[in-house]
């Protein structure tokens, strides 16, 4: 439930003798409660863009605002789920979630544990609370990460290819879990979800932001009503149409990147 606004944002990674422009003149607004997917080929700057919203990287020029206030660092109104390795390997599932809770509110250890248990049950990990991350499958680890992100009740949820390393079947379950958790809130959270999977973007988002190298190329409205379910969703003709457009954008982009030659994928 917060509005995000990027204005003429550029970002260059600077090292001793190199300067690499990763984002160039990005402008984007995301409404409160909107679910936006950022999609684009690898290396085009998606994670960099999300890093700015996370408050871990800072723009070289331009502005990044949340509810009109410039981002100066991480903040309790934002939660993040990374692709890998966001859990602390020495803490079990419950401790990981409770640790997150205790950093942002003054909950006692007991209260934090209760909230953590509640969220772990919601993501379907009732029987795995005492397991260390290494004892959980990749999908289960991401469930814990989602529980940890949601347990602090953030206004904005930032997700960087959270299901990118997960097998197809589990990914569908996680997508539906995410949608149901997001849909369950009376005041919906604003979500920025990075992916390189067109089907995932179409299933999840209200709007798809298509990125080319360094910049936003196109924004695509995804009009399908909610709740959406994987099983019914993919058979719709409008869906096929949108998907075709998106895929062709993707291939055009790939073709341009490698110099206009024909590509077979």
């Amino acid at each position: 439930m917060s509005r995000i606004e990027l204005r003429n944002l550029s970002l260059a990674y600077e090292s001793e003798n190199k300067r690499f422009l990763a984002l160039e003149n990005i402008s984007l607004s995301i409404e409160s409660g909107e679910f936006v997917c950022v999609i684009g080929s690898s290396g085009c700057g998606k994670s960099t863009l999300l890093g700015v919203l996370e408050g871990l990287i800072f723009p070289s020029s331009g502005e990044a605002l949340i509810d009109g206030v410039p981002i100066t660092g991480t903040g309790p109104e934002r939660s993040v789920v990374f692709q890998h390795y966001s859990l602390f390997p020495w803490m079990n599932a419950k401790q990981n979630v409770a640790f997150g809770i205790r950093q942002v509110n003054n909950a006692s250890k007991k209260e934090a544990n209760e909230i953590a248990e509640d969220f772990l049950i919601r993501v379907g990990l009732k029987d795995f609370m005492d397991k260390l991350p290494a004892e959980l499958s990749g999908g289960m680890q991401q469930r814990v990460a989602i529980a940890r992100a949601l347990a602090v009740n953030p206004k904005i949820l930032l997700m960087d290819e959270p299901f990118g390393a997960i097998d197809a079947k589990t990914r569908v379950q996680l997508q539906e879990l995410l949608l149901s958790l997001w849909g369950a809130d009376a005041e919906r959270k604003t979500v920025v979800f990075v992916t390189h999977d067109t089907d995932e973007a179409l299933l999840l988002s209200d709007r798809i932001v298509f990125m080319g190298p360094r910049r936003i190329e196109q924004e695509i409205h995804v009009p399908f009503e909610r709740p959406r379910r994987e099983s019914t969703f993919f058979s719709k003709p409008e869906y096929a149409e949108l998907r075709k457009n998106l895929v062709s954008l993707f291939y055009r982009d790939v073709a341009q990147n490698i110099g206009g030659e024909e590509v077979l994928i």
């Binding site: 991480t74 934002r78 390795y85 966001s86």
Partner: peptide
Amino acid sequence: IDKRIIDSAKILNVKTKVMLFQVILPY
């Protein structure tokens, strides 16, 4: 130290003391 561990802690809004003794030390 693995940057992802530090980033994970940062996005949870840990204070410096927590970063040093509840994240870096156990790591």
